[in-house]
Structure formats: structure tokens, C-alpha cells
Amino acid sequence: VTPEELRSVNEVLECYVGSHDFHNFTADKCSDESPTETVRYVTRFSCGEPRLNSFGVEYVSLIVEGDSFIYHQIRKMVGLAIYMLRFREDGERVPEMKRILGDPRRRFVPLAPSLGLMLERVMFQKENKTHGGYHTLLDFGCVERQMLEFKVSRVYPEIDSKEQAEQKKGESSQHLHSSMHVWLKFIDRTRQAWTKYFDDLWMPGPTDLDWLFNQGSGGGGRAKGP
């Protein structure tokens, strides 16, 4: 991964920072809530330095912080970011990200696989600011080193082994969310339909591209080309 590629990733992720209505970044059953139910504030979304796993595959960590998150929000944020980075030029990504984020209509957004998604820590800034003078601060700084060691020795190897195992399973079953490797193949294979969808603001009918509905509802299912 080059510094230029990392810069492009961070430029796209930066679009999510701030207050947005994420009604298109959750499951169908959650998207009909009132706007106040789907508005969330993202304080940080950035890409870390690459790492090489035990199988020789290069990874990067995406770190997102916010006041709270709704169902599937982070996975769809990652899914849309990957689509933009794979299929849009530098000057097109940010304007299109802002357009989709600001679209009040119900839209489908690619749902990235869940493998690797984890809660690293709970932030207590408000509580510390309000009660810090009377109680012990809720902070993980004193165990920062132990947390990092646990991730490197236990969490990362578990993610790597599951990705390798599910990649083999996914290649035979074509299950959309079995692994990132299979999911990326699916996005590449259906690129033409996604491009038409985002460019023309096309809304699929009930018989069009059932995989798109699976993506919108967070379902699994099998990939089905356009």
C-alpha cells in the first residue's frame, strides 16, 4: 500500500466525519425510523498503517469513533468507501460521497463483510468531563500496552485464520459475506449495475438484481450477476 493510496482512503473516510443522517447505512427494518433516530455524529474515521499478516497478505486497519452507531452502519460505511476507491477517480469521490450521504431517499449501500469488525474501547469523555472531579477517570491509557499486545497476539491471528478458512468456503458457495476476498470479487463482478445505480439514481424494481436487495437488507444469499 503506497502513501498515495493511504491518502486517498483517508480522504474518502473523512467525508463521514461530522453529523449525518445514516438512514441509508442501516438495515431496512431500521431505516423507517424518524430522522433523529438515524442521525449519528462521527468524530474520527481514519486508515492506519499497513500490516503484513502471517499468510503474507497486507492489511490496513480502519478506525472509527463516534457517539454511537446503528445496526450495519460501520459495515456500510466501509462498503461505500471501498466502492468509491475501486471505481471512482480522485476528483469524483468526495462530491459523490457527499451526494449519497445527503440523499434523503431510501438508497442501497454495499454491505461489507463483518469479519474483522470489533469494538476496541468505549470512550467516556462526557462522563469524565462531568464527574471527573469527583470520581476516578474512566480511561484505558494505563493498559494501552496490554491492549495492543492482546490484539497482536490473539485478535489479529484469529481474524487471519478465519479469513483464510472462509475464503475457501466462500469461493465454493459464493456466499456474499463469507470473506472480504469473495465480497470484493462480487463488487467487481457487479460493478456495472452499481455504477448505473449511483450515477443515474436508478431504483431497482422487484424483479431486478435480487442481490442488490440482499445488500440493502443486510441479508446473505448468493451473488447473482446483473
Score class of each variant (00 low, 15 high):
K29H: 11
V94N: 04
H177V: 08
A112G: 03
E58T: 14
F140Y: 12
D199S: 12
M203N: 10
R40T: 12
D160Y: 02
D199Y: 05
F87W: 03
P95V: 05
N24W: 00
L209F: 14
G56A: 04
S172K: 15
P3M: 03
F108P: 00
L184F: 05
S61W: 02
P104H: 06
L6F: 02
W194F: 11
S8L: 04
F25G: 02
P157C: 07
E166N: 13
S68E: 11
L111D: 03
Q215I: 02
G225N: 14
L148H: 10
T36K: 11
Q73P: 00
V109Q: 02
Q125W: 06
V109I: 15
R154E: 15
V143P: 00
D160R: 05
E158P: 01
P206E: 14
P50W: 04
L85A: 08
R107F: 00
E33D: 09
W211H: 10
R107P: 01
E4W: 05
S46Y: 08
G218I: 01
K185G: 14
S34D: 12
G133L: 00
V39D: 03
G56I: 02
L101Q: 07
Q125M: 06
D160P: 01
S68K: 10
C15W: 00
E37G: 14
R154F: 07
Q146V: 08
M84R: 03
E33G: 15
E5P: 00
P206Y: 05
H72G: 02
E89Q: 15
V64H: 02
E158W: 05
P226L: 06
E65M: 07
T207G: 07
I63A: 11
F150Y: 14
M203E: 12
F22P: 00
Y197I: 03
G218M: 00
V78M: 03
G116I: 01
S31C: 06
L85E: 10
D160F: 03
E96N: 10
P113A: 09
G216P: 01
D188A: 15
K98F: 06
W183V: 07
Q174L: 12
P3E: 06
T130N: 11
C47S: 05
